[in-house]
Write a protein that binds this DNA or RNA. Structure first.
Lengths: 197, 197
DNA sequence: GGTCAAATTGAGCGATCACTCAATTTGTAA
DNA sequence: TTACAAATTGAGTGATCGCTCAATTTGACC
């Protein structure tokens, strides 16, 4: 009894699985169960476990970029859009994601050594994301939302690190009110960046 | 040709291996090579891979706590001690560790599901560490280094998250000068906490 | 209904996984 | 030197790993 497969749905299922379990701990048996595809079909469609993982990383990045752009469009200012994204659309706050952790952050700390193609894809997506933050801060500076003296790349670095730290804390903490406070704090820091140093 | 083993040395080797490769990606073959112990000896000495991992987590926590205490003792104030620790003794800055990432942070993002004993041990050590930070901030407040209104637990949460974010960034970044700047920024924030909010 | 290329199937490949235990070697003490 | 408990050895356990491919089923066109 063969079944015609929906590659997009299968990719979403794989993304959820990799996101929650990690790369090494996700077996092909897990992927078969989650996607409903037999090993031959999985390999015909995606090539290998590593390639499927890379596709999952890309899928995730696209989805989160779209969420960020949407937050940007519905906001009155550039920094407000960024803060809104953090407060309502980022995995750490949205409550929709399988884990309250950016998939790229988790993947970075897990994979750092091993498959070369995965590391390269991860670097590409992370750099791309940080450059996007830098562009946003540059845009904010151009529109007068930031002092002329501010350094968009530095702000982008700090935001990347701050989001990663928040993700880490959200994953392990049981006290969700503390997380809420930390999210609010970060969003506030984005809205009104420190001028010191 | 039998060899008498040094359990402490073997544990150190295991720690380095788990720290760099992660739990799931470290095989018993890897551990055999690194410790020089055959599987039977490893099991006689440590019980199982999971137990050896837990012991590694404990060993790491002990070592880093000792480094923090030392920084505390050689400093003129509580907050200065904490900042010095971050700048010179934490894995992210010390340059001695196998990776510029706190082992507990990496382990948390990798393991989060799976072996129950590991998760419990990880939670225990992370909570213990955060409570230690809170004690330090409380001590600083008692000694007048912080305003009476400051919340030691909140500061401890934020420091935990900030260190995790820094670790994440240090692991992936190629630009070490940027990392140096971020470490200095964090140490500075510890020395002179923001009074806002 | 007949034909055929494309998609799906799933048993099974060799490799590796965490782990065991009977056999051997070692250190100690009489 | 002998005796014996403790430590070490490493071949081997069954399970599972990522992955392949010949056989089967499907859907599109005539």
């Amino acid at each position: 009894m063969n079944v015609t497969h929906d590659k997009d749905a299968a990719l979403d299922a794989a993304l959820t699985l990799f996101w929650t379990k990690g790369y090494a701990s996700t077996s092909l048996k897990d992927l078969e169960r989650a996607t409903g595809m037999h090993p031959g079909s999985l390999y015909a469609a995606f090539g290998s476990k590593a390639k499927l993982y890379c596709l999952s990383l890309e899928r995730y990045t696209q989805a989160i970029s779209a969420a960020r752009e949407k937050a940007q469009e519905t906001s009155t200012s550039v920094l407000e859009g960024l803060a809104t994204f953090i407060e309502h659309a980022h995995p750490v706050s949205a409550g929709i994601a399988p884990l309250p952790v950016c998939f790229l952050v988790k993947a970075t700390l897990e994979t750092c050594q091993g498959n070369e193609a995965i590391d390269a894809k991860l670097s590409e997506l992370l750099n791309q994301n940080e450059m996007l933050f830098a562009d946003i801060y540059q845009d904010a500076a151009d529109k007068g939302e930031l002092p002329k003296s501010s350094d968009p790349k530095r702000l982008a670095r700090q935001l990347t690190a701050d989001l990663a730290g928040l993700c880490f804390y959200a994953l392990r903490a049981k006290d969700s009110s503390a997380i809420g406070g930390m999210i609010a704090d970060l969003a506030d820091r984005v809205r009104r960046p420190r001028l010191s140093d």
